[in-house]
Amino acid sequence: MTSKFKLGLIINPIAGIGGSVALKGSDGEGIAEKALSLGAEAKANKRTATALAVLLPYKAQIEVLTVNGDMGEQRAVELGFNTQVCYTAQSPTQAQDTENAVNALLANNVDIILFAGGDGTARNVCSQVADKCPVLGVPAGCKIHSGVYAVTPKAAGRVIEMMVTHQLVTLSEADVMDIDESLFRDGIVKAKRYGEMKVPIELRYMQATKSGGKESDELVLQDIAAHVIDEVDDSLTVIGSGSTTAFVMEEQGLENTLLGVDLIQDQSVIANDLTESQLWELLEKLGKNNESPIRLVITLIGGQGHIFGRGNQQLSPRVIRKIGIDNILIIATKSKLSALESRPLIADTGDELLDKELSGFLPIITGYKDQVLYPVASPE
């Protein structure tokens, strides 16, 4: 009789909860409570369900070993998996619970630990697991700098599927990175390597460690900025996060939120660092009196290729639909696109239908009156 695949599961239920309300994360005392008071919605369990749904055809072959409640048990049981609780967490859950849960799963000799969270969660897992067991992250946090995460929740499920179905999967060491969220909220990115963990490598499904640093080709960025300024003219324009979009703001002499979302019109700032609800309300209010279409200017995360779903959760499905796909301006240098090595851009909005609508070849502004067609894929 073939033994069952033992899947260790840990969910950080508050991971990324500060993203949609412009808090840039969930780390820190009182941040989760503040996010909830601002109307944030915890999405880590939903994203984990997306990963586990890929494994439903193999339920009879899988035993899920996990933590009680919303740290894993609830989601696994709802989906019908054979589930065993190995650790009981306190309420509300703490970082220590993640660490204790890792040790409990290791004691039960799981085949792999699947965890949902962000870089803070990866650090907690890394502090206990070392090289004792393979791990795989389901991206659910605001900060995903570590290389231990799949590119999307569904991709995480695909990697586990390969293991369950006994396909050859290479194990490799991947860096665990994190940044200081207190500096992050002030617009300063300071990343640090905290260790490495063994992860199953399948390049279609695993992300590269996030590229850092500013664009160095200032002349190209000036050309891109000039094109965008001409294109948006006097339109009500949402400016997404990132150093490339920040350059567009700098060229207009406007205050910019490097790691947030701003709203401008007529080369003037209407509001900086907006939450999802604030952005929605302004678009609803100001869009009615605006003859030109609302525009959205975004860029991609260097080294990963995400255009939605990483660091810009304020751009929710309803906001994107309000603006309209045809009114989205994606900007990037050709060197940044080349660094993706032909991998598609990824739209991971959390709305499967919208992700599919965004899929296909979209124009990317790479200079003044210079565009290239580049593929955009929905999560797999």
Rank of each mutant, 00 (worst) to 15 (best):
315 L>N: 10
285 K>A: 10
339 A>E: 14
329 L>W: 00
332 A>K: 06
288 K>Y: 05
358 L>H: 12
345 L>F: 09
343 R>E: 08
301 I>M: 14
364 I>Q: 10
363 P>Q: 10
305 G>T: 06
360 G>Q: 02
370 D>M: 07
335 S>R: 14
369 K>T: 08
331 I>W: 04
362 L>Q: 08
353 L>Y: 11
364 I>H: 01
304 Q>H: 10
312 N>R: 07
353 L>D: 14
302 G>L: 03
339 A>D: 14
320 I>G: 07
338 S>G: 12
315 L>E: 07
318 R>E: 06
306 H>Y: 05
333 T>R: 13
358 L>C: 10
360 G>F: 03
324 G>N: 07
335 S>H: 13
346 I>D: 14
343 R>K: 12
288 K>M: 08
347 A>E: 10
323 I>H: 11
349 T>Y: 09
310 R>W: 05
293 P>G: 06
359 S>E: 02
290 N>R: 08
352 E>S: 15
344 P>W: 06
353 L>K: 12
342 S>E: 12
318 R>W: 01
314 Q>D: 11
369 K>V: 03
311 G>M: 09
298 I>D: 04
357 E>C: 03
316 S>T: 15
345 L>G: 09
302 G>Q: 05
299 T>G: 15
341 E>P: 00
308 F>T: 04
303 G>S: 09
294 I>E: 09
350 G>E: 08
283 L>A: 11
283 L>R: 11
288 K>C: 04
291 E>F: 02
333 T>I: 08
370 D>G: 01
321 R>Q: 13
335 S>T: 15
334 K>L: 12
361 F>H: 12
326 D>Y: 05
359 S>Q: 00
359 S>C: 00
365 I>H: 08
288 K>D: 03
354 L>S: 09
368 Y>G: 01
297 V>H: 03
316 S>M: 07
318 R>C: 02
349 T>G: 02
291 E>A: 13
329 L>S: 01
353 L>E: 14
314 Q>K: 07
302 G>D: 02
324 G>D: 06
369 K>W: 06
326 D>K: 14
308 F>I: 06
352 E>N: 13
286 L>K: 12
308 F>N: 05
348 D>Y: 07
297 V>D: 07
339 A>K: 14
355 D>A: 10
344 P>I: 10
306 H>W: 02
331 I>S: 10
358 L>N: 13
318 R>S: 10
342 S>W: 00
358 L>M: 15
347 A>H: 13
296 L>R: 03
349 T>P: 03
340 L>W: 10
326 D>M: 09
284 E>C: 02
368 Y>F: 11
299 T>K: 05
296 L>C: 06
318 R>D: 07
301 I>T: 14
346 I>K: 15
361 F>S: 13
298 I>K: 00
289 N>T: 10
305 G>Y: 04
334 K>H: 04
335 S>D: 15
307 I>L: 08
347 A>L: 11
